[in-house]
């Protein structure tokens, strides 16, 4: 197996006086979609923010594509090739859809062919191209946030709970988008609570609890093992069909 795209070893993160991550070991294999599951407050978002350099690890090491990014600044991490879709989507509501995407394109202007490809699964973005992003619906904002992360090819995509608060039909279009990305062998680390959403998407899976990874393995194995699901996630599949 080739060297993983991202590897966290023994990462601890403190926020103020709170010890959130307590030794996280996580690897994200190249070209695969890794799902990070866990209940609220398990430390999933903190893990993503630590990778992004928005919070710094107090201990442990983060290796991205063979490069140590433990103490790197957020802009450098971004330029090294990681795109981030935060939980609150982080879109600039005052700017138009076009301007939001423009800022994400470091080459200057977004590539037209790639834009058309994105419009293929997020047609709403084309329609509201010159609208202020703040006027979009929740689902459209999520599409914009993801589009912003993929408007140029990046080595790794971090996505934090994209389905949160979205209607099932919109989730379907997100699934389509992630399938497209998978087809292009994009490496993705996806944080989710909605097991139904990620069950069919994920290649590998890690489960977090209390600031640690408590399980990691292949997604298909977890998807078939109801007992393990019950133990790790405390959910029966019916709730999220």
């Amino acid at each position: 197996m080739s060297e993983p795209m991202l590897a966290l070893t023994g990462v601890h993160t403190h926020i103020g006086q709170y010890h959130i991550l307590q030794g996280v070991d996580l690897t994200v294999p190249r070209g695969e979609l890794t799902v990070l599951l866990g209940r609220n407050g398990a430390g999933k978002t903190t893990t993503l923010r630590t990778i992004m350099g928005l919070w710094h690890a107090s201990r442990g090491a983060l290796l991205f594509d063979g490069r140590d990014i433990t103490q790197a600044a957020t802009p450098d991490i971004s330029c090294a090739g990681i795109a981030y879709v935060p939980e609150n989507m982080g879109i600039f509501s005052d700017l138009t859809v076009r301007e939001n995407l423009l800022l994400a394109a470091r080459a200057g202007e977004p590539d037209t062919a790639r834009l058309e490809w994105i419009f293929g699964f997020f047609p709403a973005l084309k329609k509201f191209w010159n609208q202020a992003a703040g006027t979009l619906s929740g689902g459209q904002k999520q599409m914009l946030a993801i589009a912003r992360a993929i408007v140029e090819p990046r080595k790794l995509l971090l996505v934090d709970e994209p389905t949160k608060g979205l209607a099932p039909a919109i989730i379907q279009s997100l699934i389509a988008a992630f399938r497209e990305l998978k087809a292009m062998e994009t490496t993705i680390l996806l944080v989710e609570q909605n097991f139904g959403f990620v069950k069919s998407l994920g290649d590998t899976v890690a489960v977090m609890d209390d600031g640690r990874i408590v399980h990691s393995g292949r997604m298909d194995e977890l998807a078939e093992d109801r007992d393990l699901q019950q133990k790790l996630l405390g959910l029966s599949l019916d709730t999220h069909q």
């Binding site: 992004m52 928005l54 957020t74 802009p75 935060p86 982080g90 879109i91 600039f92 800022l103």
Partner: peptide, 8 residues
């Protein structure tokens, strides 16, 4: 924060 996360 998001501006930084976009690499600026």
């Amino acid at each position: 924060e998001m501006v930084e996360a976009l690499g600026y």
